[in-house]
Design a protein around this nucleic acid. Structure first.
Length: 422
RNA sequence: GGAUAGUUGGCAGAGUGGUCGAAUGCACUAGUCUUGAAAACUAGCGUACCGCAAGGUACCGAGAGUUCGAAUCUCUCACUGUCCGCCA
């Protein structure tokens, strides 16, 4: 969430930038400032009541020690009154604090000035495009047909055992999946990221800290019995490792990578978007996460984009790079770069990576700070990106590399798969 | 799942109703001494919030309660250790 001091000091600018999200936050911002003002004055009142009460309580102790019973009784009466008074004020203070908290939770991150205006993914701005778009052959099949033909993914079995969106990978399909995971992890390690295997389930506090809650409540699988959530991305457990942490400045930057399955309910999705591997309830992803000094974070974002572009180049997949518009920007992100891969047979660009700078928005919820040389505490910046999401990579690989003699595995993956064609 | 013990500052560990935000030791920071280091000595050393400041408030696992006053008493919950059971 945004820092209240930032809201107060940059009110006009924040309202202006939030318009890029098609959001008129003016009324909410005013409300926040008003509630904060009220909270402050009530809090001061409460503090002084408590101070007085503490002083009297101390006095009573001394009076008893001096055997001054009557005076002590008198003071007790006054103490009782103060307590009642304080209780009443405390209720107001707590209510205001709750209200303020909830209001702040409802304000999304302020978009970076470079975020273009727009309503939907159609308004995202293309930055670049690379790689050779394959010429589609006569008998080319979409990946779901290929999967069936070569018996590498079993969607029906998934429906039988679990439900739609939970496919089985079988035989060479499973091995290719594992190969991709290992390839991505090895690449990340070589780029200096520390590998983590986190829990795939997180508690409520973690969900709030990275911003999935309350914004995406309905999008996560929830175990009500233990109040735990299946992770929608490794971002949640990896970033939450640093919840409530004060780092030394020299510990920055933190570079983490992790493979996890990701679980998403995807309520409200439909149509050709969900065909085959295009959108699943469970999918595999390797994520990269960084904790950075605020002065570095945008430079780092560029590095991360370049890194992921490098992966796609190695896999020989045509891709394009997009700057997300305000309407498509995630709730907690200040700037997001998407990478889309061209999947030839279905003639679609598929999002395979989303790389975001959250600036201090997550860090403020996480209470993730670092101490600078003057021992001053500052919020760190957090960033993350997919590197990469597997199913759509798989879809594009299958579709783009199909030949009359089977599907060719990209050279870089062969050491991992142990086979060259499917 | 059953029984039992516990949860105090970076760590260890005192503290069972009133000068306790909390002894002491270790660690850490700065200084003295030293050619340098170690040792010794001296001082400092939690977090958050309010306030221009002086200062104030809160925090001893979490929440509620008793009391003029709670780390200390009561209740609820969470977590950890140990033993038993079950199990990868």
């Amino acid at each position: 969430m945004l820092e209240i001091t930032r809201i107060k000091e940059n009110k006009a600018e924040i309202i202006e930038l939030l318009k890029v999200r098609n959001m008129d936050a003016a009324a909410q911002i005013e409300k926040i400032i008003a509630v904060d003002e009220q909270w402050r004055s009530n809090k001061q009142k409460q503090d002084s009541l408590l101070a007085e009460g503490n002083a009297i309580a101390k006095q009573i102790g001394q009076l008893f020690a001096q055997k001054k019973q009557e005076e002590a009784e008198e003071a007790k009466k006054r103490g009782g009154e103060l307590r009642d008074e304080e209780k009443a004020v405390a209720e107001v203070v707590n209510a205001l604090a709750d209200e303020l908290q909830n209001l702040l939770y409802e304000i999304p991150n302020v978009p970076h000035p470079s975020v273009p205006a727009g309503n939907s993914d159609e308004d995202n701005v293309k930055i670049s495009e690379s790689g050779q778009i394959p010429v589609v052959g006569k008998n080319w099949l979409p990946h779901w047909e290929l999967a069936k033909k070569h018996e590498i993914i079993d969607f029906e079995m998934g429906v039988k055992v679990t439900g739609a969106g939970f496919p089985f990978y079988t035989g060479k399909g499973a091995r290719l999946q594992r190969a991709l995971i290992n390839f991505f992890l090895d690449e990340a390690r070589d780029a200096g990221y520390k590998e983590i295997i986190p829990p795939f389930v997180v508690n409520e506090a973690s969900g709030y800290a990275t911003g999935q809650l309350p914004d995406k409540e309905g999008q996560m699988y929830h175990d009500a019995q233990d109040n735990l959530y299946l992770i929608p991305t490794a971002e949640v457990p990896l970033t939450n490792m640093y919840r409530n942490v004060i780092l030394k400045e020299e510990e920055l930057p933190i570079k983490l990578t992790g493979y996890t399955p990701c679980f998403r309910r995807e309520a409200g999705s439909y149509g050709s978007d969900v065909r085959g591997l295009n959108r699943l309830h469970q999918f595999d992803k390797v994520e990269i996460v960084r904790v950075e000094h605020p002065s570095q974070s945008y430079e780092v974002l560029d590095q991360m984009v370049a890194y992921v572009q490098g992966l796609l180049t190695k896999l020989n997949l045509p891709y394009r790079t997009l700057r997300l518009c305000g309407g498509d920007l995630g709730f907690t992100a200040a700037l997001t770069i998407d990478l889309e891969v061209y999947s030839a047979a279905q003639d679609k660009w598929l999002e395979v990576s989303s790389i975001s700078n959250f600036e201090a928005y997550q860090a403020n919820r996480l209470k993730l700070r670092f101490k600078d040389a003057d021992k001053k505490k500052n919020l760190a910046h957090t960033l993350n990106g997919s590197a990469l999401a597997l199913p759509r990579i798989l879809a594009a690989l299958l579709e783009n590399n199909q030949t009359d003699n089977g599907i060719n595995i990209p050279e870089v993956l062969v050491p991992y798969t142990g086979f060259e064609t499917i």
